[in-house]
Computed example of a mutant assay.
Amino acid sequence: MDMYLIVYLIFVIAPLTTLIHELGHVSGSLIVKADYIRLTMGYGKRPFTFNFNQIKFIFYPFYFIGGFTTSERDKPYKNSEIVWVTILGPVFNAITAWLSYFAFEFYPSEFLQLLFWFNIWMAIVNIIPFKINEKQTDGFTILKLMIK
């Protein structure tokens, strides 16, 4: 793999895929009518923030080091609503993979191929239930809710 593709993967594809994943959770939160939603990308000092309705977007300088979304509502969430919010992250990645696959058919490029494979990876890994320290996948969250 060329060096420019590695740089592209780290600084464009990985954060874009993470953002797509987190926007899935944001969409789920909007569906269940969350009062407050916060999407955070990366780590560091002095973030760039902006609000859009009840959604607060926070982007840190090291935007390529992951992301997470939280949402709150006065009325407690039902387990089925949490499943909706949780599952839409991997679903958005699967849809993006599917769209990038078809785009690749018309405009073949290594960039679209990376976008496809990274979104496939993100969707599959996040639906497999496992936990490492305090981090857990969406699949683990769903499994916990189903066995309650």
Rank of each mutant, 00 (worst) to 15 (best):
L23H: 02
L23I: 07
G24V: 09
G24S: 14
V26A: 10
V26C: 05
V26K: 00
G28P: 13
G28Y: 03
S29G: 15
S29I: 04
L30Q: 13
L30C: 06
L30M: 03
V32L: 03
A34Q: 04
D35L: 03
I37T: 06
I37S: 01
T40G: 06
M41H: 07
G42Q: 03
G42E: 05
G42M: 08
G42L: 05
G42K: 03
G42Y: 08
Y43W: 12
G44W: 11
K45H: 04
R46A: 10
R46Q: 14
F48P: 02
F48G: 02
F48I: 12
T49I: 07
T49C: 09
F50V: 00
N51S: 14
N51I: 01
N51R: 15
F52R: 15
F52I: 07
Q54P: 02
K56H: 13
K56P: 03
F57L: 07
F57R: 05
I58G: 04
Y60M: 01
P61Q: 14
F62K: 11
Y63D: 02
F64H: 07
G66T: 01
G67T: 11
G67H: 15
F68I: 01
E72F: 08
D74E: 15
K75D: 09
Y77R: 10
N79G: 12
E81A: 05
V83P: 11
V85W: 00
V85Y: 00
T86P: 06
I87A: 08
L88P: 00
L88E: 02
P90G: 08
V91Q: 09
F92E: 01
N93W: 00
N93K: 06
A94H: 03
I95P: 08
T96V: 08
L99T: 07
L99K: 05
Y101N: 06
F102S: 01
A103Y: 12
A103Q: 11
F104Y: 12
F106G: 12
Y107G: 09
Y107R: 11
S109T: 09
E110P: 01
E110R: 07
Q113L: 15
L115H: 01
L115G: 07
L115P: 01
L115K: 01
F116T: 15
N119Y: 02
I120R: 10
I120M: 12
W121E: 06
I124R: 00
V125T: 14
V125N: 12
V125W: 08
V125D: 09
N126G: 05
I127P: 06
I128C: 07
F130C: 02
I132V: 15
E134Y: 14
K135L: 12
K135P: 00
K135Y: 13
K135I: 09
Q136W: 13
Q136M: 13
Q136F: 05
Q136T: 11
D138V: 03
G139S: 06
G139K: 05
T141E: 11
I142V: 15
I142C: 03
I142W: 00
K144C: 14
